[in-house]
Design a protein around this nucleic acid. Structure first.
Length: 755
RNA sequence: GGUCGAAUAGCUCAGCUGGUUAGAGCACUGCAUUCACAUUGCAGGGGUCACAGGUUCGAAUCCUGUUUCGACCACCA
């Protein structure tokens, strides 16, 4: 024992310790959670990071906070369960994979759907080890036996069942919809996933007979089905309700002039060309005025057949040609080359969005959103920090029907099946046996190809909005093709609490649902949090969690958002290597108190690295003093604090003990209301300013070393417990030295109580 | 355009319902090293709490307005 004590190195070597402690926890299977009927459950589900991605600073903060809560509750005696998982990350992963493909000179269009899916599956399997390793490296006390991937069979099962229930209850419908389609990436994006970038484009003033219209997109004029003016615009009163005739690039043309208050009199000439098929606002005007929806741009980003001489051209090329033709016809009044406007792009990749009309799958949200809103308003779900609640409330109040279909392969395929005989209007694209792409109506293609050949080479299909379908997990008997669209990832991750806990039958679900805290970044409160609450209530009658804690975004050292283009991304690995996991976790946790965004607190990380070393040396010194005492006193051991006669304590001792009691109280109070930084700060200052600076210093000169050391050891051990959820490695490592019990794990000891 | 938030020491941030000389970490200055830790100890400097009004016995804290930043949402073709 004596020999072991003095072996402590003078420096805390975080890398070595992190490894051995991780192994120790693993070996003891310390974080496998048992459903103990005598304990209360406490549950957190890890928001699943991208399976083929790597850890970023935000993930580190997320794990630090969740691990803190879970370790705290575990020590308090709860059946504390933290379920880890990873996300298939839909189109994001597909885009990454396609980048790999293009290095080999290939693209997704060279494969049929199933082959492509299988190879992305393999790609993800090959890459997902990294993020799992990083979660372990962080010291996350998750229960790996319950690890879930968003495409696990049990996830598909839950998502299919939910979908089926919704279809049966009339909550799912198909409709045409102007979608944010990205021809380059081959899929649609939700409004939330669209960003706008500023760009300078020519603004063309084009003559429509007696009227002139300003537009940056002359090529869409081929899809115009009306001109619109503001009903109170005095300039154009005589045209409202009339039809005007005019010269156009494809010959004589005529359009009705309608009045709609959407039109801004100030912009351009105050006249709007209405193109319902290629603009969201125009689409709505079209619905209001019962206009024809004329589509002139296809899914491939090229002009459609009905544009005759422009058919097959890319949009930009068609724009140039049309401008040229208009100029030749003298139909361009002027061009404003200085016009700056905002162009929609997808939120990843910056590729341009082309609004198109496509049949889509929708969720009717009217009956779902009310209970989800009420759950927050009446406090069943509490949001921290409180001021973020308004974001949620506004969103739920204004929520519109939710388009859930995406045209990516990498995702959960919608389990709807179309009978090809009953739906001759389905447009199918497939690779035939020779590897050539064929597109056409299924009824035509079946004249030249067998159903089996089409089925096995299927790339995608577009079914009309009124197509007949049946919902089934497995292929029905007969000639059925499955919908090729996949679910929006938020449709499936919105059911994460159900999936991870094995809804509806499993014991886990019965014991752990609803969970206690959903901890995540505020930027996905709409995308994710709202959907989980909706699905949770819809399927189980109960919201999936009681509290939502939203952490702030970690900004770069320059205080700006981290981004590749600014080159200011902080790689957490470097900090873990240099200062240790504990220091990084503690630094991030105390970087912000209340969920606000904050700049990466580099100085705090360094400060807490110093703190780890301080703790290490406090232990080292205490053990040295104990060794010395025992040597001098014929191996008389220092008595347990519990066995001391409390009358022997000095005033100093009592002051320290009082301070400890206060500390325990304030740590608990702060953690209850998610004030992590306050708790961290309190422990730091008690340990450094009181325990190290006063208590240890006084032990050096105390006569009654027996009592003094016993008190010191007691307080030190209690402090290690308090600190453990924040800095698990150094505390566990020091515990190993000071606990004097074999195989005792600090992670599994009881949380301190006030005396 | 709508909404939310922020402005406190050189830097990054605390300061919860208004109450003694405004705090922390890092940075800075001076001193200390055979006594666990220089990733240390001791001592110290540094703030008209964005600005202007108001409420109050009392305001960094509450109210109003102004300025400047940040983010989110919606977008004018």
């Amino acid at each position: 024992m004596t020999a072991k004590r003095t072996q402590m190195e003078p420096k805390f070597e975080h890398q070595k310790v992190e490894q051995t402690i991780t192994q120790k926890w693993e070996k003891a299977d310390a974080f496998k959670t048992v459903r103990d009927p005598n304990k209360k459950p406490y549950t957190i589900l890890l928001p699943p990071p991208n399976a083929s991605g790597k850890m970023h600073t935000g993930n580190v903060l997320m794990i630090a906070i969740e691990d803190l809560l879970i370790r705290w509750k575990r020590m308090q005696g709860y059946s504390a369960l933290w379920v880890p998982g990873t996300d298939h990350a839909g189109f994001e992963t597909q885009v990454t994979y396609e980048r790999e493909l293009s290095k080999q000179g290939k693209s997704r269009l060279d494969f049929d759907r199933n082959t492509l899916y299988d190879s992305i599956w393999k790609f993800v399997q090959d890459n997902k080890g990294l993020i799992e390793e990083q979660i372990k490296q962080m010291g996350a006390s998750v229960d790996w036996s319950r690890y879930t991937f968003t495409l696990d069979p049990k996830a598909l099962e839950v998502v299919h069942n939910t979908f089926e229930k919704m279809v049966n209850e009339g909550l799912i419908y198909r409709d045409d919809y102007v979608v944010n389609y990205c021809p380059a990436l081959g899929t649609t994006f939700a409004d939330l996933e669209v960003n706008f970038v500023e760009r300078k484009d020519p603004l063309y003033y084009i003559k429509y007979g007696p009227l002139t219209v300003a537009t940056v997109r002359p090529e869409t004029k081929l899809g115009d089905t009306a001109l619109a003016v503001n009903p109170s615009d005095p300039r154009y009163q005589q045209y409202i309700g009339k039809e005007i005739e005019f010269e156009d690039v494809m010959g004589k043309n005529k359009l009705p002039v309608i009045a709609d208050s959407y039109v801004d009199m100030e912009f351009g000439t105050g006249i709007l060309k209405v193109t319902p098929a290629h603009d969201k606002n125009d689409y709505e005007i079209g619905i209001r005025h019962n206009l024809e929806i004329k589509s002139v741009i296809g899914l491939n980003g090229r002009m459609a057949e009905n544009t005759r001489k422009y058919a097959g051209m890319k949009v930009k090329q068609a724009r140039e040609e049309i401008v040229k033709d208009l100029q030749n016809l003298g139909l361009i009044e002027k061009i404003d080359y200085e016009y700056v406007h905002l162009v929609p792009v997808s939120y990843k990749g910056e590729k341009e969005i082309e609004p198109l009309v496509l049949p889509n799958w929708f969720v009717k949200v009217d009956s779902l959103k009310k209970p989800a809103l009420d759950a927050v308003l009446n406090g069943d779900v509490k949001i921290f920090p409180k001021w973020r609640e308004i974001t949620y409330v506004r969103w739920m109040e204004e929520m519109r029907d939710w388009p859930i279909s995406r045209q990516v392969v990498w995702g959960i395929r919608i389990p709807a099946w179309y009978n090809v005989q009953e739906n001759p209007e389905i447009t199918v694209t497939f690779l035939n046996k020779q590897g050539k792409v064929e597109t056409g109506l299924i009824s035509d293609l079946l004249k030249n190809y067998s159903f089996e050949e089409i089925e096995s080479g299927l790339q995608n299909l577009v079914a009309p909005k009124n197509a007949k379908f049946i919902v089934s997990k497995n292929k029905p008997n007969g000639q059925y093709l499955q919908e090729t669209d996949t679910f929006d990832t938020w449709f499936s991750s919105g059911q994460w609490p159900l999936t991870t806990l094995g809804y509806p039958e499993s014991e886990d679900f019965k014991y752990f649902y609803p969970t206690d805290v959903l901890e995540t970044g505020w930027e996905i409160i709409r995308l994710w949090v709202s959907r989980m609450i909706m699905f949770g209530i819809y399927m189980t009658g109960q919201p999936p969690f009681k509290n939502v804690y939203l952490h702030g975004m970690v900004r770069a050292l320059d205080g700006r958002k981290m981004s590749k283009s600014l080159g200011n991304i902080i790689n957490p690995d470097e900090y873990m290597e240099k200062y240790g996991v504990d220091a990084l976790r503690m630094g991030l946790i105390s970087g912000t108190a209340n969920g606000k965004d904050f700049a990466f607190p580099k100085d705090k990380v360094i400060g807490y690295r110093n703190f780890t070393n301080k703790i290490w040396n406090m232990a080292r010194f205490m053990l040295m003093m104990m060794d010395k005492y025992e040597e001098e006193n014929n191996s008389t051991a220092i008595p347990e604090y519990e066995k001391l006669n409390k009358n022997d304590l000095t005033d100093e001792d009592r002051t320290m003990i009082n301070g400890l009691n206060e500390l325990i109280r304030s740590v608990d109070n702060s953690l209850e209301i998610f004030r992590f930084a306050d708790a961290a700060d309190a422990i730091y200052h008690y340990m450094w300013d009181e325990l190290a600076a006063k208590c240890i210093e006084s032990v050096k000169v105390r006569e009654d070393k027996r009592i003094a050391l016993s008190v010191l050891r007691h307080i030190f051990k209690e402090c290690l417990k308090l600190l453990h959820p924040f800095m698990p490695f150094v505390t566990e490592a020091v515990w190993e030295k000071v606990s004097e019990q074999d195989n005792s794990l600090l992670a599994l000891t009881s949380w301190p109580k006030e005396e």
